[in-house]
Amino acid sequence: MKKILITGACGQIGTELTHTLRKVYGVENVVATNIRGGNNESVEKDGIFELLDVTDYNRLLELMKKYEIDTVMNLAALLSAVGENNPQLLWDVNMNGLYNCLEAARETGAMVFTPSSIAAFGPTTPPDFTPQDTIQRPTTIYGVSKVAGELLCDYYFQKFGVDTRGVRFPGLISYSALPGGGTTDYAVHIYYEALKNKKFTCNLNSETYMDMMYMPDAIDSIIQICEADGSKLIHRNAFNITAMSFCPVDIMNEIKKHIPEFEMDYNVDPIKQNIANSWPNSLDDSCARAEWNWNPKYNLESMTIDMLEKLKIKLEL
């Protein structure tokens, strides 16, 4: 990677990815883009920033040629819970945006990284230690778009030789930017509320297990797979990756080790609960470990310590 363009750079993943890539590859070699400005000062002011609606192919191609881009990291997307309220918009952004990235990469010779998700699985998928290759029949439009995206990326690699790469992210937890409407968002908001109010109302059932990952590991995974030897990648567009699996009770108990007075109650959101019920409890990421040496650094205990420390500073507590 020499010249990188990030779509959706002001989102939860994009914010931290942009900062990290600017440090690793140089500010002048990272082009951050977003559909609108004015909502993420550090991304917009600390390096190259351009407005881009990923569904606008001509604008995307213009920027790729202008900056001589060799790697596109396509993060522009609507998430699971938001998508259920507007499936047509999700399909337009997630699928047509990806199609444009692949077409532009076909013309310019760039690599394309696109994240898939645990949402690519469904209620008929084996729920525990879910295999890399297994049944994928999701019941959300977000999940359907992710399965279609995995297949489309495979097609562009096989048909046109576009160097496509991707991982299936679990729920992501970050102190830097708030999430944007995903089913696993509770695992971010719980830390904020624990510090500010010592109380949190969870919108999932207490025993709802899902795979999760701390954002520093997620950022590392993107860089690692993009820098990996392509000849060794068998499952190049949809690697299972994970770091930990827990339920709301587990994260509550971990927080209480540091904030003993913390309390949690429940007000279950039926839409998010149904989505969570359709996803695996845990993933088998052995293929990622074998093919590009994936190895996360954080577990629930170490993540909780770091989240609380960083948020105290951020919230000036």
Rank of each mutant, 00 (worst) to 15 (best):
W292K: 01
P270S: 10
L204S: 06
H235R: 02
A276Q: 13
H258K: 09
D229F: 06
D229T: 00
Q224F: 03
I271T: 14
P248E: 11
L233G: 01
N253K: 09
H235N: 10
Y209W: 14
A288M: 07
S231R: 01
N281Y: 15
S282T: 12
N267H: 13
L233V: 03
K198W: 02
N240V: 09
I275N: 11
K257T: 07
D265C: 07
D269E: 09
I255H: 00
F246L: 15
Q273T: 01
M215D: 03
L204Y: 03
K272T: 00
S282Y: 14
A238G: 15
W294S: 11
N281P: 09
S286N: 13
N293S: 13
T208A: 12
G230V: 03
R236K: 12
E254G: 04
C247H: 10
N281G: 06
I234G: 01
E227T: 00
P270H: 06
I255G: 13
N267T: 02
Q224Y: 01
R236N: 04
M213Q: 07
T201L: 08
N253T: 02
D229G: 03
C226W: 04
K198H: 14
N267F: 12
T242H: 06
I225L: 15
I255N: 05
K199T: 06
S282F: 10
I219V: 14
I255P: 12
I275G: 10
N295T: 15
I225S: 11
I234A: 03
I241P: 00
V249Y: 05
C247V: 00
P270D: 05
N197G: 07
N277K: 14
C247G: 03
C287L: 07
M244Y: 08
S245G: 12
R289I: 15
H235S: 03
D250E: 03
A288E: 08
M264A: 08
E261W: 00
K198G: 09
Q273P: 02
P260T: 10
T201F: 05
M212E: 09
T208F: 04
F200P: 02
D250G: 13
A238F: 09
R236A: 02
I225G: 06
N197C: 06
W294G: 02
M212C: 11
M210G: 12
A228K: 01
I251D: 10
E227L: 04
I271A: 15
F239E: 01
M210L: 15
A276E: 12
E227D: 13
K272H: 07
S231F: 01
A243S: 14
D220T: 11
F239R: 01
A290H: 10
C226Q: 07
N281E: 14
Y209R: 12
K272S: 12
D220R: 13
P270V: 11
S278Y: 15
C247R: 10
W292D: 07
A276K: 14
W279K: 05
W279I: 12
N274C: 09
L204K: 06
D269G: 10
K272N: 08
P248A: 08
A288F: 05
A290C: 06
S245I: 07
D269C: 11
S278I: 05
E263W: 00
C202P: 07
I225M: 12
I275T: 08
S282A: 09
S206P: 08
D265T: 10
F239M: 01
Q273Y: 07
L283C: 04
E263G: 07
P248G: 11
M244D: 14
L204R: 05
S245Q: 11
A290P: 07
Y214T: 02
N274I: 00
A288S: 12
I241T: 01
A288C: 07
G230P: 03
P280T: 12
